[in-house]
Design a protein around this nucleic acid. Sequence first.
DNA 1: GATGAATGAGCTTTCATTCAT
DNA 2: AATGAATGAAAGCTCATTCAT
Lengths: 197, 197, 197, 197
Amino acid sequence: MKIAEKKALKRESIIQTALQLFSTNGFHKTTIPDIATKLQMSVGNLYNYFSSKDILAQEIIKYTSEALGEKIRMVNMSEATAEDKIHQIVTIYFTMAEEKPEMIEYFLRVYLSNREVFSDGCEGMVCVSGFITEIMIFFDDCVASEELRNQDFFSAFGLFMGYLGGMVFLKGEHVLPKEIAFYIDDISRNIYNALKA
Amino acid sequence: MKIAEKKALKRESIIQTALQLFSTNGFHKTTIPDIATKLQMSVGNLYNYFSSKDILAQEIIKYTSEALGEKIRMVNMSEATAEDKIHQIVTIYFTMAEEKPEMIEYFLRVYLSNREVFSDGCEGMVCVSGFITEIMIFFDDCVASEELRNQDFFSAFGLFMGYLGGMVFLKGEHVLPKEIAFYIDDISRNIYNALKA
Amino acid sequence: MKIAEKKALKRESIIQTALQLFSTNGFHKTTIPDIATKLQMSVGNLYNYFSSKDILAQEIIKYTSEALGEKIRMVNMSEATAEDKIHQIVTIYFTMAEEKPEMIEYFLRVYLSNREVFSDGCEGMVCVSGFITEIMIFFDDCVASEELRNQDFFSAFGLFMGYLGGMVFLKGEHVLPKEIAFYIDDISRNIYNALKA
Amino acid sequence: MKIAEKKALKRESIIQTALQLFSTNGFHKTTIPDIATKLQMSVGNLYNYFSSKDILAQEIIKYTSEALGEKIRMVNMSEATAEDKIHQIVTIYFTMAEEKPEMIEYFLRVYLSNREVFSDGCEGMVCVSGFITEIMIFFDDCVASEELRNQDFFSAFGLFMGYLGGMVFLKGEHVLPKEIAFYIDDISRNIYNALKA
DNA sequence: GATGAATGAGCTTTCATTCAT
DNA sequence: AATGAATGAAAGCTCATTCAT
């Protein structure tokens, strides 16, 4: 294996470990030594891969947003109806919340709330554009096919992002009386009703 | 003025100042000296009112939840239609986000994301019950009058809380192309469509 | 009751409460508010009786030394043999350690170890002279009657004070396998053997 | 020199410096910055060696107890009479009080009196077992050879520890009219008389 | 005499980052 | 590339003492 490849692999393993720790314990409660220890790596070497804790946090949000966006791209490329696509997106989101909760939790507990960490380097929403772009494509397509009502994109985006994020937050607080998967149908239907033409 | 009254007033002024600083700069980036300085008060004296930074944060979320819940109680007590009530709630929320943004931001940037701060003392959602209870009453009433479809409460609650919170988050990120008030009608309509019978 | 009397009574109740708290929790771990609270008294008022925490600690050691000295004075005034007097003193000391352990513990845990507190006001051993004086009289009497060997007073005093204090320390550490009273005979005998003519 | 060796050396130099400061100024009056400054070391780095001030205090008592125990082990291994061994132990103790007073003072002024510091980690007397064990061996040997009277170990241990400690305390208070060495013969004789068969 | 809110210096501890090896 | 000892500023919190009421 080439050196560059090995480096890329290690870079990704750092991202994944840090992602998990940040999500679970919070950005400020996770220390660089914590991350290094879990990786069985020295702190000094970690700094060879990411030049600061903030930069690391920013790379994680890009990575996560890209991963989520990629899944939604599949939906966009399919020939399904709007109603069906909504159901698929909700399913993807909640499945991820079940199987890789750290990704969604990172949005909620790290990105959302540590403005100062992301202000230099993630202005606007550039670091989450991977995800937003796909939602935008989905929405535009369905408006073009006259399945969804034409309205300001952010009204629709806020619904998706806020609703799904909110449910995962409630899950994280252990206040949901049922498994998150139970809500997929209800929520898909609510979203479709809200947006349909 | 009685001493007890003066103490209560000072207590509230601490809550309001801390609320603003926590919302703006984040919980971990706001120090006790920051709060004391802004209040022209000594650090030691602040601890005569709140025994720790965490306790202060918890008292703030209770205070905020109560204040928001009270406004929604007005709506619940009115004789309006479901569609109208939704519009009123959205208006209240966005008006508050415009006029007292720190309250909503506190939910998003402090309460939502610093689990460890609220885990001892705000288990479940007891510290935000003031707000949740009113949303629950609103929803139950409208289901009873057959204006809204009967479904799991959390599916509906997640929609409200998540959607509105999401929009305010986007506002805070300065990515919304229009004033937040502009979205009131669209969003009310979306929510009503999502939930109507 | 005269005002002066009331004041004296309150003064003594402060001494006793502070004595107990200092002995149990240590000088530095006991706060003035702790003492005031236990006395149901305001901190401000406590300062009307003792002008500082250090002064209070000094008054306590004088009080304690006086109380202990008084008991030994009884022994000195009796007509008993040296061997008997030693037994009586040991009994007094261990009985006190059982019934009012805070007095002995105060010697061990407060007076012994917080030099800086007693350096201004209790130089030499003036604050414990009440106790020392009586031991000195006891020793001189028994030497005069040729029951005890004549030797440097401090060699004898160190034996008494150190031995008895050491046993009470061991008691406080819960390492003694028996009740402290069990050791009275052994220890009296050891001391008598050590000092007898 | 290996890194591990250098670390061990530094660890010991911290122990010695802290030992001296704690003994002289008391545990609560000695701050971590005081210790770091004297070592020309940063505060943060000191915490790389000892995870808290309490832990440091505990390591010191173990170290001191071990050092003292080792000297007494020499006596135990010699073929001397009981009377002679007592004289040797007293000499060792007083010589140390003269030459390395901080070790003895640490027992008296730090270990003896700051119970809360040692309660978690030094329960019973485990942290001073190095010293106690040797005294126990000395006593058992001399009882076995019928030179000393058989009695409860703690009666004998309290005599040694308390008497010697008491004398060093008096020395520290500057109330002894003579050098401490002057008392060696008297005290050895008193102890021997107290314990002999 | 009595109150307790107020002060603020000072404490222990943490942690992102650097750099000699 | 890899190590981890070292730095030091800054955090949360405490508490003896004062003083207006």
